[in-house]
Amino acid sequence: RKEMTAACTPRRRIINLTSVLSLQEEINEQGHEVLREMLHNHSFVGCVNPQWALAQHQTKLYLLNTTKLSEELFYQILIYDFANFGVLRLSEPAPLFDLAMLALDSPESGWTEEDGPKEGLAEYIVEFLKKKAEMLADYFSLEIDEEGNLIGLPLLIDNYVPPLEGLPIFILRLATEVNWDEEKECFESLSKECAMFYSIRKQYISEESTLSGQQSEVPGSIPNSWKWTVEHIVYKALRSHILPPKHFTEDGNILQLANLPDLYKVFERC
């Protein structure tokens, strides 16, 4: 597991931080080997919608929660590849102030007048994250320049770009939802926020969305749709870069829909 690298990086740093090793061990302890084997050997059937997909393993048909699986995938990559990410360069710098204002204007932020003026909160978020810029760049390849612009994001899987519609809320939550006081809790909560931002979430995906850094293989055609990215990038990574937690067998994120021999018997009677 320590050699797990989802995106190509030129050289690998050895990380011996106790906090990170502890988080890696927790993933191992909570892992479910049968689910790992199923995901490793599954045959992708198709997307139901951005949140759900169908896959077959041996004779069984499964309904998989793409949102939760991708979130767990990105969390584990962030923990196992800690401080070893490439950088996704933004085509132009994104001012943190503008991103924070967009987030505060969104109902998702939960902002009320009692929280104070949005401009003041946005300025605080910019200054707060600028103070964390060195650590964010060093460990997470999340790059913020001296003017308070976001200029780079971590490359977690080759050819995958997170849904940038979720970027404003991500920046807001970096400042408000991460435990910045304790090292282990900081790395864990920061990785979880980043994983949620990178995950496939239906509120940020339309039929026209593209999450891939590449064009489709047909010359002159439109960019790959999110469905292509889910199948050929995300579920491909799920084959080798995730140890599913045991609770996925109990919380409805992986559901067995049918045993195909039983279905064949039904059709034979028709």
Rank of each mutant, 00 (worst) to 15 (best):
P117G: 11
P154W: 01
L164N: 04
V48F: 06
L172H: 13
E146R: 08
D181V: 14
L211A: 10
Y124G: 15
R201A: 01
L129R: 01
E127C: 10
P95N: 14
F248M: 14
A55E: 01
D251Y: 04
V126M: 10
Y80Q: 12
F197G: 00
Y80I: 09
S221P: 14
L54C: 15
A100V: 12
I171F: 04
F197V: 02
R11Y: 10
Y80A: 15
Y80E: 09
R13D: 06
N253T: 11
I233W: 02
T229R: 15
E146N: 08
V218Y: 13
C186Y: 02
E72Y: 06
T5I: 05
V34F: 15
T66Y: 02
K131M: 13
L23K: 02
E37Q: 09
I144G: 00
L156G: 00
V87Q: 07
T176Q: 15
E119P: 12
E231L: 02
E92T: 10
W111H: 12
K118L: 05
H32Q: 10
N149C: 08
A94L: 08
G86D: 09
T9P: 04
L64P: 00
N49C: 12
D138C: 04
D181A: 15
V87P: 15
P261L: 06
F187N: 01
E188S: 13
E113F: 09
S221T: 13
S199D: 02
A122N: 02
K132T: 01
Y198F: 12
C47P: 03
K236V: 05
D105Q: 10
E71K: 06
R13K: 06
I125W: 10
D105A: 13
T176G: 05
A103K: 00
L129D: 01
R239M: 03
E193D: 02
Q214D: 09
S216M: 14
T59L: 13
T66I: 01
E188I: 08
V34G: 10
E134D: 14
H32N: 12
S141C: 07
N49Q: 05
E134S: 05
A7K: 04
G220W: 08
L190Y: 04
L153Q: 01
S22N: 14
R11Q: 07
L23A: 04
W111Q: 04
Y75I: 02
S216A: 13
Q214W: 07
L164K: 09
S91M: 07
F85W: 00
V34I: 11
E183L: 02
I254L: 04
D138T: 05
I205G: 03
E123A: 13
E3H: 07
E193K: 04
L260A: 12
E26P: 02
L64R: 01
E29L: 12
N159L: 05
I27D: 00
K2D: 10
G252D: 15
I222G: 12
L63N: 00
E250Q: 08
R13Q: 06
V230H: 00
G110F: 12
D98N: 13
E26G: 09
P261C: 08
V87W: 14
A237R: 05
V266A: 12
N224V: 15
F128D: 06
T67E: 09
E165A: 10
L136C: 04
Y235A: 00
T249H: 11
N149G: 07
R12N: 12
E72G: 03
Q203R: 12
N159D: 14
G120A: 06
N41T: 11
E3I: 11
F197A: 00
C186H: 02
N16D: 13
L129P: 01
L104W: 05
T210E: 09
L96V: 13
V161T: 14
E71R: 05
R11S: 09
S91F: 12
E143H: 10
T229W: 03
T176C: 09
E72C: 13
G252H: 07
L153K: 01
L102H: 12
Y139V: 03
L153P: 01
E92L: 06
I242G: 01
K227Q: 05
I77V: 12
G110W: 10
C194D: 00
F85V: 05
N149F: 09
E188M: 12
S225F: 07
G220E: 15
P219M: 10
L35F: 11
L102W: 10
T176M: 10
G220V: 13
K131C: 10
W111M: 11
A94K: 14
T67K: 03
R173Q: 04
E217C: 13
G120W: 12
M38W: 03
K2W: 14
Q215N: 12
G86R: 05
I27K: 03
L255M: 12
L153T: 02
Q56Y: 10
A7M: 05
L54T: 05
F82G: 02
P244V: 05
F187E: 00
E183K: 03
K265M: 08
L39V: 05
Y198E: 01
A103Y: 03
G46A: 10
I157C: 04
N65D: 15
M4Q: 15
S212A: 10
L121P: 06
K68C: 09
L54F: 04
A6K: 04
L153E: 01
L88H: 14
I200Q: 03
S43E: 08
G110Q: 12
P10D: 09
D181S: 12
T66F: 02
K68D: 05
E217D: 13
G46S: 15
L39F: 11
K192G: 05
T67Q: 08
H232E: 05
I151T: 15
N224F: 14
F140M: 05
L155V: 14
L69G: 01
